[in-house]
């Protein structure tokens, strides 16, 4: 797979900022201050036809951690999430303007192929969407289309590793040939995460991944997200305040297409600066 940026560049990023990474969770930063930014957004606007859904967002997303996007329905948080893997391209009439840098490179420039970008930026949707194939074939789908495995043995390895990382291996290892659609909702969502992991992405975007799950499946999913953040940059849209507080390190509050407040999760939930954020978090609006 073609990497947009050489891996040495990425390593140097991390080498320069080890202490910041360690301190990431306690260090109070404003939106532009941290150095381990995976994405840098400048004046990002999303239009659907003549309607502007996002009004110029400036925001950085940290690498190796969970960033939660919260806000009332229709505030633009899902549109913003779909900016990072250019999924807005698949919607007719949708247009994105502004600058989005991933590891310093503009992902909306002409020499970026959205197909290759999406292999680096995986996505998990609101409703579990396993393909009508076996569990094995679901996970092997991405590696097959991107030619990640030369042999069957290699592919078997990728499938096992991905299912292990997705926290599903122990539950399905004896029935890999069963249809993926036959799993429970929570298992399906973890299968979809394993499917995304199988193409070895750097970022995983999650659009309300727990909204269709029961509390037990949600708890398992949150444990999984907590493990994944060690190796991936995770951006999650959620309607659950408690979930955002539990799993994220940074939280961004969106309202009417604007980024109202962005910072450490602990600070947003204990001491929000903007009244709108406070009203939303305490349940007065929404």
């Amino acid at each position: 797979m073609t990497q947009l940026l050489t891996s040495t560049n990425k390593v140097s990023y991390r080498a320069l900022t080890p202490e910041l990474e360690l301190m990431g969770q306690v260090n109070v930063t404003t939106e532009t201050e941290f150095d381990n930014a995976k994405f840098t957004c400048r004046d990002v606007r999303v239009h659907y036809g003549s309607l502007e859904a996002l009004h110029g967002i400036d925001m950085n997303i940290q690498d190796n951690g969970v960033t939660a996007l919260i806000g009332p329905s229709g505030c633009g948080k899902s549109s913003f999430l779909r900016v990072f893997n250019r999924m807005n391209d698949t919607i007719t009439g949708a247009r994105v303007s502004g600058e989005v840098l991933m590891d310093g490179q503009d992902i909306y420039s002409n020499d970026i192929d959205p197909v290759l970008l999406r292999a680096r930026v995986g996505m998990v949707f609101q409703k579990p969407n396993p393909f009508p194939k076996s569990i094995y074939d679901n996970v092997a789908y991405g590696p097959r289309i991107h030619g990640l495995a030369e042999t069957r043995v290699e592919l078997d390895g990728i499938v096992e590793t991905s299912l292990r990382k997705g926290g599903l291996w122990e539950e399905v290892k004896d029935r890999l040939d069963d249809p993926g659609t036959g799993l429970s909702g929570g298992q399906q969502q973890r299968l979809v995460i394993a499917r995304a992991i199988a193409v070895d992405p750097e970022v995983i975007l999650m659009d309300e991944p727990a909204s269709a799950l029961d509390p037990i499946a949600t708890a398992k999913l949150e444990v999984l997200i907590d493990e994944l953040k060690e190796n991936y940059c995770i951006v999650i849209v959620t309607h659950s305040m408690a979930q955002a507080a539990r799993i994220s390190q940074k939280t961004a509050f969106f309202h009417m297409g604007d980024l109202v407040e962005y910072g450490e999760t602990a600070k947003i939930f204990s001491n929000p600066e903007d009244k709108r954020t406070q009203d939303y978090i305490t349940g007065r609006t929404g």
Partner: peptide, 11 residues
């Protein structure tokens, strides 16, 4: 959602 899932994997 199935099409979206496939596109999101870089298909």
């Amino acid at each position: 959602t199935l099409r979206d899932g496939s596109y999101a994997l870089g298909a």
